[in-house]
Structure formats: C-alpha cells, structure tokens
C-alpha cells in the first residue's frame, strides 16, 4: 500500500468532526432535551404523568395497534416478498412498485384515503352506518392506517434477501421429500430470520410512532382513540410540558431500544451472510 497524501488526515478529521457535530446538534441534543424536560419537575411528576389514566389508555392503544399491525405485516410482507423473489409472473414490477406506495405517499393522504372509504360520507359510509360498524374515529381505522403506512418495512427488507438466496435451498428441500410447509418452516424461515427480525423492528417502531395517518382517522378522543404520539400533541397544546415530554420520553426510549436491537441484529445478519460462503 502506498502512503496516503498528507492532506487526507486533515480531511478525515474535518469529515468526522462534521458528522459528529451534526449528529450531536440534530439528534443527540433533542433526545437529551426530551428527557430533561420530562424530568424537569422531578421523578415524581414524571411517574404521575405516565400513570395518568388517559396516558395509560394511550399506551395500551398503541401497544394494541402494534400488536395487530405488526403480525399482519409480517404475514403480508413474507407473502409478497416470497412471490416477488421466487416466482415470475405478469405484473411483478407493478406489485413491487405498489409495495413502495406507502413510503412515497404522505401519511396524511394515507389517512384521508380511509376517511374517503369508510367515513360517514365515504364510499362505504352508509352501509357501515346501517350495520352499526364504526371504522373512522375508532380503533379499526387506526389499525388500518397503521397497517398501510408500515406495510413496506418487512417486504422491502426481505425482497433483496430472498432474491439473492435464489430457489436452490427450497428446491433441495423439496427434492429430499419435504412438504411445502416443512420447506418454509425449516429452510426458508431460518434463511431469512435476521432480515425478517430487522424488518419487524423497523415496522414496530413506525407502528408505535406513526402520527400523520393515525391523526387523520383517530378523532382524538381522550382515553379512547388517542395513541401515544397523539396524546403527546394534545398535552403539549395544553401547555402541559412535563406530561407531554414524559410520554414522549417513552417513545424516545422505544427508539433507543429499537436502535440497540437493530445493531445487534445487523451484526448477526452480517455474520451469517459473511460466514455463509456464498
């Protein structure tokens, strides 16, 4: 290896300093501010803000929505990725672009789509009213909007991975007499497990943190249709800063935990890929 030019040392230092400075200013500082504000009036006030019934309801609703949306998107994501990566069929490229739709469309529009479909004046509104089914301004609408905006995470993660792996392993399993289910459970799933887990983490983080789409369909009924992000906004608008930041700190904690898990998964994922030999 030849010696590096003398200037590269300075350039490298400048780049690293810039990157760290930027991260500190735009990411670390706000994060610290969240926890500082939340604990501004002591730990007692912090605990009380979280234990407040409406806050607890928001936490419960957020967990419920994620518990429905994430498994659904695991199933949809695997099915879509499997179809796209392992089979050739007409309309494949169209399906692939459709998967990206929730990323490319504004979350507000995503929410409005459901209002248009299921709202009182929407396409299915009259029918729903007759049958006494409430979707918009109720939990089903929140779940639908969340499923919509979080759909791409699992599929996006799996499509390149499954394409790269090809069909050899599945064909080998089938040729050895395995059924379709055995092949999926014992060969395909272990092959994609780290990629899948990575996708699930991102999907979950977004499902719990989604604001725009959920805000449109929720109706903001305290203790009923408020998720954590919506609850934070309401508290903030009421100048109840300690409570707002207390709930926000929970979301920030979720982000941190997700980041740590993501790093661990990434590390395992690379290890598995690197050690696989092909």
């Amino acid at each position: 290896m030849t010696a590096r030019p003398a200037t590269s040392g300075a350039a490298r230092f400048a780049l690293i300093a810039l990157a760290i400075g930027f991260l500190a200013l735009f990411l670390l500082l706000p994060l610290v501010a969240v926890f500082a504000e939340a604990l501004a009036k002591g730990f007692g006030a912090y605990a009380a803000a979280i234990a407040e019934p409406d806050a607890l309801a928001a936490i419960r609703l957020t967990l419920l929505v994620a518990a429905i949306a994430v498994p659904l998107n695991i199933v949809f994501g695997i099915a879509a990725a499997w179809a796209i990566a392992k089979f050739d069929f007409p309309g494949k490229t169209v399906l692939t672009s459709f998967i990206d739709l929730p990323f490319s469309v504004s979350p507000v529009v995503a929410g409005l789509i459901y209002v248009l479909l299921f709202g009182a004046h929407g396409w299915f509104g009259p029918w729903l009213r007759v049958h006494d089914i409430q979707i918009i301004f109720a939990v089903p609408g929140i779940v639908l909007a969340t499923v919509f905006v979080t759909f791409p995470f699992v599929a996006r993660e799996l499509i390149p991975l499954m394409s790269e792996q090809g069909r050899d392993d599945e064909e080998a399993a089938l040729s050895l007499g395995a059924s379709g289910f055995q092949t999926f459970w014992r060969v395909t799933l272990p092959n994609i497990r780290w990629g899948l887990l990575y996708g699930v983490l991102l999907c979950n983080a977004r499902a719990m943190g989604e604001f725009g789409a959920v805000s449109v369909v929720s109706g903001h009924l305290r203790g009923q249709t408020n998720t954590m992000p919506l609850h934070v906004e309401i508290l903030y608008n009421e100048y109840n800063f300690v409570a707002a930041f207390a709930v926000a700190s929970l979301l920030a904690l979720l982000a941190l935990v997700t980041l740590i898990l993501k790093s661990i998964v990434e590390w395992r994922f690379d290890y598995q890929r690197g050690g696989a030999g092909h």
């Binding site: 064909e171 040729s175 030999g277």
Partner: peptide, 11 residues
C-alpha cells in the same frame, strides 16, 4: 439432486 452451489442448509 445435487446443485452447483451445493444448496446446503447453512443454519
């Protein structure tokens, strides 16, 4: 059936 790239189950 034996594949060119072995297709062993790596896990």
């Amino acid at each position: 059936f034996v594949f060119q790239h072995y297709a062993l189950f790596k896990h």
